[in-house]
Design a protein around this nucleic acid. Structure first.
Length: 462
RNA sequence: UCCCGGGUAGCUCAGCCGGCAGAGCGGGUGGCUGUUAACCACCAUGUCGGGGGUUCGAAUCCCUCCCCGGGAGCCA
């Protein structure tokens, strides 16, 4: 079907030209001699004004052009007579593909609450808000690949089904083809997974890091960008059970390279959104006031504050604010502490580095002080932790000792230890929750509103 | 999972110290108008989240379950 996207009509087409446009009716206003339709096709934030003169055959179709109807319109592009839009299409013909009963169609001309829209997930993309979110999300996805590809990183596809169950990254979903009515009994009252599809228990991945590490140990710089699953019973505006994670892994790199990459990465993403999503950011700024062009511009340039965990604790101890949770060297930073650092002290993104080893994962590289590991978290205002990364422990004996001390069984991870036996090298990487960066940049308060089909406890309808 | 708050018309919400179920928006009809989330008039709307209890009488009080939101924990 020949059609021109509204985005192109508004930017590429000269007035006086015939155009065919398809889309969904946002609103219709009828007058005595003329009717107006605001049409949107998802290609841009803007609607296209269709002007339907009363004498045309198109005018007779108007009764079924209600909000939500899918139509095709033919006409001529003109400079708009009225205020509020630069161009409009004077329509000669309308075809209605599918009307939408105004008594039943849930979306009204008025705004809806985000909570209500979550209940009609299948119609949600037709709203201004969600259209804007999806376009920003798309631009960010593209920007992720562009950033890494430009730097010579290789995109690798780590598995979604995995047998690694000892990363300590959270509760995992089991993948099984066993008959759940009568699973085979194991020795200790459990289930005998040796009879399962893979011959042992399998899970949905919680991270592609360990696999990305072994690929980096031959390919140099790699990154993953794919779905990730956590079975945690988290009910917050910042957690999903299924989300997309970006995990770069660099060979011959230390924690400082890692921090620099993280900062450059976020700067690049902000720049790309500024460049390509002006209309969307304007919209968020106007309707939600949680983000702005100005804020993004600062974010795209301003160096991130970097401080050690030890310095962060000192900063918190100096605070006159009362915290619910105690501040003491050796305890993990709580949300309120992170927010204090990003929102009150430094007023922007902060990288905290060199955490106590006992509150971090076994694979993180131990620092010479014997107390801390080369781990870093990027904290941003409002959203909190957006990146977690580290230099990996490349020394076999140190790693084995650490795994033993932390009760991580060595037998399932011999392949991981092999990387330290044969051609081991310093390397580092991080994980970035994609939805969190979308949330951060759009200013959307709830992470369930930045992914088309949010999965969360008791939430899988759409 | 824990702590708060909430569930009343299609949507947003008022009514809640027990006594006839309401408003605005949206929808329908008519009018008016190159309109802009148009405007004016009229009309229709209900399992008051489900179940149980107290009472002459429950949207309102009590118990319970479900669902939603905010915060916390876990993390990205």
């Amino acid at each position: 079907m020949k059609r021109i996207r509204i985005k192109n009509i508004l930017s590429d087409i000269n007035t006086g030209q015939p155009v065919t446009v398809c889309g969904w009716v946002r609103s219709k206003r009828e007058s005595k001699g003329v009717a107006f339709i605001a049409l949107n096709d998802g290609s841009t934030q803007d609607t296209l004004q269709l002007v339907v003169p009363v004498e045309t055959s198109a005018f007779t179709k108007l009764s079924s052009c209600n909000t939500g109807a899918a139509i095709r319109a033919e006409g001529v592009l003109k400079e708009s007579v009225g205020k509020g839009q630069k161009y409009e299409v004077e329509v000669s013909e309308i075809e209605v593909f599918g009307d939408a009963d105004p008594e039943k169609y849930p979306l009204q001309k008025k705004g809806h609450s985000l909570e209500f829209l979550r209940e009609i997930g299948h119609l949600r993309p037709r709203t201004n808000t969600f259209g804007a979110v999806l376009r920003v999300r798309n631009v960010l996805s593209d920007a992720v690949h562009e950033f890494f590809q430009d730097r010579g990183f290789i995109w690798v596809h780590t598995p979604i089904i995995t047998s690694s169950d000892c990363e300590g990254a959270g509760d995992m979903f089991t993948v099984t083809s066993l008959d759940l009515q009568k699973p085979p009994a194991g020795s200790n009252g459990g289930i005998d997974f040796s009879q399962d599809f893979f011959g042992r228990r399998a899970y949905l991945t919680v991270s592609g890091q360990l696999e990305a590490e072994f690929i980096a140990m031959s390919m140099g710089d790699v990154y993953t960008f794919g779905p990730t699953f956590r079975a945690e019973n988290s009910n917050t505006s910042r957690h999903l059970s299924e989300f997309w994670m970006i995990e770069p892994e660099m060979a011959f790199a230390d924690i400082h390279d890692d921090m620099q990459l993280a900062e450059d990465f976020i700067h690049a993403l902000c720049r790309k959104v500024l460049e390509k999503c002006g209309a969307e950011i304007d919209f968020f700024e106007k309707f939600y006031k949680n983000t702005s062009m100005h804020e993004l511009r600062v974010l795209s340039e301003k160096p991130f504050v970097r401080l050690s965990y030890t310095e962060a604790v000192k900063e918190l101890e100096k605070s006159k604010d009362k915290f619910e949770f105690p501040v003491r060297w050796g305890l993990d930073l709580q949300s309120e502490h992170e927010r204090y650092l990003t929102d009150k002290v430094f007023k922007g993104p902060v990288i905290v580095v060199d955490y106590p080893k006992d509150i971090k994962a076994f694979y993180m590289r131990q620092n010479p002080d014997g107390k801390t590991v080369a781990a870093m978290d990027v904290l941003v205002p409002k959203v909190g932790e957006i990146i977690g990364g580290s230099q990996r422990e490349e020394r076999l004996e140190v790693l084995e000792d650490r795994m033993n001390a932390m009760g991580v069984p060595l037998e399932n991870l011999q392949w991981y230890l092999d990387l330290r036996r044969y051609g081991s090298a310093p390397h580092a990487g991080f994980g970035l929750g994609f939805e969190r960066i979308v949330q951060y940049i759009t200013g959307m308060g709830n992470i369930r509103d930045v992914i088309p089909c949010p999965r969360a406890p008791h939430s899988i309808k759409f």
